Amino acid sequence: MHPIPTIKDVALAAGVSIGTASKALNGQGQLRDETRRRVRAVAEELGYQPNDLAQSLHRKRTFMVGLISTDNYGRFSMPLLEGIEHALGTAELSVFLCNAADDSERERRHVASLLSKRVDGIIVTANRTDPRPPLDLLGSRVPVLYALARVPDDSALCLVPDDAQGARLAAEHLVGLGRRRIAHVTGPRDYEVVGLRQEAVREVLVAAGLAFPERRVLSGPWRATWGRAAAERLLSTDPDIDAVFCGSDEIALGLTGALRERGVRVPDDIAVVGFDNWEIIAEATVPPLTSVDMRLRDLGHEAATALLGLIDGERRQGVHRLPCDLVVRASSGAAGGAS
């Protein structure tokens, strides 16, 4: 077995000092181009690989960041992570994913572990955007950014989807298709996004001269079973509705199934729009579900880019709401049925 080549071996073979070899390989110092090329050629010939720890200590950077999530199922954190890794990959940074599972002590242990690894920054994410306590950094000054999460701290930087704008897209889409009696089946009232979306729908309908009575707003769990129960209630109490905007794709899945079992045609009789654009659910719905997409991959990419700025000393703060998209499929009855 051949010994692993060291920086000393490279320097000896290139006929330079160890300091000069290090500067040539790190792109530092005032060296002649010929010297730099010769050192790098020798390093490649020997198969020399720089020591990551030594490099990080030299540059005062580890090129590692932490991602702390409370999303047990990964429904929101995984697409967010894809966007984060895509952005950080181009910067050659590695990501440590930690699941805190809404456990403050577990989160504290993850923070301690990440700090012991000397991470350059931390991104905190969740499965809801209601305010949470700021991350306890145990006295460290490492940069922190919140993505799909928010803290009651004006100096923190928080990136979240614009839920109100997404709900307006859904409501305007249904109104534009000629729907006039629109119901909203959504999640628990204690979620901030529930209030934001409901108010946005109300504004669109009022602006269009349409009624939006309280009986057409039904709140329950973020579950398909709730969608089924809500469909039964709407058909019993408000049988003239011609559209339903659901607060999640799971709710929409249950609702459309119940409508179909009752002989109600979607979208001919009742158009349906969901929220999340969870493709495995949206495409399994019959017919395929029109849904609001929070663009979580884009949000993750933006979060990683912003964190790199914080690491480099930029000062950004406040809550930034990023726009959503509407992915049109057959359930709303739009011409073309997809986009």
Rank of each mutant, 00 (worst) to 15 (best):
N26I: 03
P221M: 00
T70C: 13
L310I: 01
R297S: 13
E283R: 14
V160Q: 00
N127T: 11
G47C: 04
W222L: 14
L81N: 05
T35Q: 01
Y48G: 07
L259Q: 02
A304D: 03
D298T: 13
R168C: 03
E283G: 07
G27W: 07
N72G: 11
I18D: 09
M64P: 12
L174R: 08
A207F: 09
R38N: 12
Y48K: 02
R260S: 15
P287W: 05
H110R: 08
A304I: 04
D130M: 09
G318S: 01
G187H: 03
E279L: 13
D9I: 02
R297W: 12
T70Q: 10
Y48P: 10
L299D: 01
P79E: 04
C246D: 02
L218A: 04
G313Q: 09
R181K: 11
A100R: 15
L310A: 14
R37Y: 07
R223T: 14
L322D: 00
Q198S: 09
H320L: 13
V151P: 01
E199V: 15
G89A: 00
H320G: 01
V327C: 09
K117F: 11
M64V: 12
S22W: 06
N51P: 03
M78R: 14
W222V: 15
V16N: 06
A282C: 07
E192K: 13
E45F: 12
E107I: 10
I241K: 05
L135P: 01
A43H: 01
S291I: 01
R118L: 09
P3A: 10
P133T: 05
E232V: 13
E199L: 15
P79T: 08
A41M: 03
V95W: 10
E232N: 13
K117D: 10
L81A: 08
L210V: 05
G337K: 05
M294N: 11
S155W: 14
I84N: 12
